[in-house]
Structures are given as C-alpha cells and as structure tokens.
Design a protein around this nucleic acid. Sequence first.
DNA 1: CAGCATCCCTTAAGATACTG
DNA 2: CAGTATCTTAAGGGATGCTG
Lengths: 125, 125
Amino acid sequence: MENKDAKISINEEGCKVKLRAVQDTLDILKGKWKISIISSLSFGKRRFMELQREVDGIGAKMLSKELQELEINGLISRTVCDTKPITVEYELSDYGKTLQNIINEMIDWGLNHRTNIIERYKAKS
Amino acid sequence: MENKDAKISINEEGCKVKLRAVQDTLDILKGKWKISIISSLSFGKRRFMELQREVDGIGAKMLSKELQELEINGLISRTVCDTKPITVEYELSDYGKTLQNIINEMIDWGLNHRTNIIERYKAKS
DNA sequence: CAGCATCCCTTAAGATACTG
DNA sequence: CAGTATCTTAAGGGATGCTG
C-alpha cells in the first residue's frame, strides 16, 4: 500500500515537472509567428525582407517584434551588414538550433496530416 | 548552370513545403492552451475538472472551447459517464497520440532550458 | 532595406453568474 | 460536475507613413 501510494505520488510529480517543461518551452515560443520564423531560419540565414516574404502573411511590425524577442532569448543572432542600403541578416544561434527537433517533428506531423486530410476527402467522394 | 538552378529551385520548393507543413501543424495547435491540454492528456484520461486543475491558470470557458476544437479535429475523444452528477472523460484519440513526438520534444527542450537558465544564473553569482 | 511610430480595430480571454 | 451565457478588458496585430 505504501509502495503504491509512493509510486502514484512520484508519477504525479513527474507529470507536473513535464507539464512545467512544456510550459517553459511554450513561453519561449509563444506568439503567432515565432515558430514559423524559426522554421524559416532553420533552412539558413535570412535577411529581414526575405523572412517577410517567406513567412506568409506577417507584417514588418510583427516580424520586427518577434525577432527582437527571439534575440533576447538567445535563439537567433542579428548581424548588420555594411552595404549601401543596410541589410540585416538573421540566423539561428547554436542554442536556437536546439529547437530543430521540435521543428522537425512539426514538419513531419504537418506533412502527414495533410496526407490524411486528402485521403479522408477522397474516401468521401 | 541549368543543373544548379534546378537544384536551387528544388530546395526552395522543399522549404516552402516544409514551412507549409509547420503552418498546418500550428493551425491545429493554435490557441493559448491547446498544447498544454494535449500534454496533460498524454499522461492518461482526464475529467474536465482534473484538466482544469492540471492546466495551470485555465478557466472553464477556455478549457471548454479548446476541448471542443480538439475534438472537432479528431485529436481527442469525449465520453460522458452516467454517474450521479455527470462526469465527462477526455482522452487522446489514436490520431491525437501521433502528437506525442512533438510533446516529447517540447518536454525535453523545456527541461534542458530550465537547466541552462539555472546554470547561467549560477555563473553570474 | 530595415524598422519605428501612430492609429485603429478585431480577437482572445478573464470574471462572474447561471443551468441540467 | 460540466459546462453555457454575457459582459468587459487587454492584448494582438494590421495599415500606413516616415526615417537613417
């Protein structure tokens, strides 16, 4: 009996710790565009405009804001290039690259999901 | 030259497809609480109140709304139990369980991130 | 090009009270 | 217990125009 209770207690603690871990991750990744931006940068460095073109629907204001937050959290680096009209290059930091696993899983799930939706649609017709 | 251009073109297409995949996933998971709810359910079935207790800070209204959306997308199942005051049990569907990889990566990253923050703090003092 | 300032509107979401 | 209804507020986020 004591053993069983202890086990449950440990498991409950385990859940809490894991839920908190998810929450921690979510806090860093919150915002409508952050994960899309990181995904885009996971393919290589990008300039401001390139990001705006690649992240569908984002405006300059939001892009700017979310990039700042990502930089503050040490996930990306920002480099001002000394070109005629200045350009700025964004890049995933080493720490930012540790998010790659999450991104990859999201890519896989999304690809699979789209396939499923199409299959479901075909099955109906 | 033609080869090189073709390669670039293919890669660019690859990025777009992947970014769209991420977006597809994000569309399903959007909302302040959805990932937390799924995480909680990934540990087993939960009743409405249990979820509200486990997902820190969520109100009944939001919990109800996000559960409905998750159900519509086929990620969770809802079972009304015929008890004296009725109870309702929520559970990840088989399809919902395919999100487990994403959740796990988020747990890992969050655990690691917390450690890093603590290390960083220690280093300063 | 990069990005800030301003204005403005829509949506998210919290609080509270109520029902089967 | 498991929600729903209503109200209200805060925040998110778009459009435009401007600057180094």
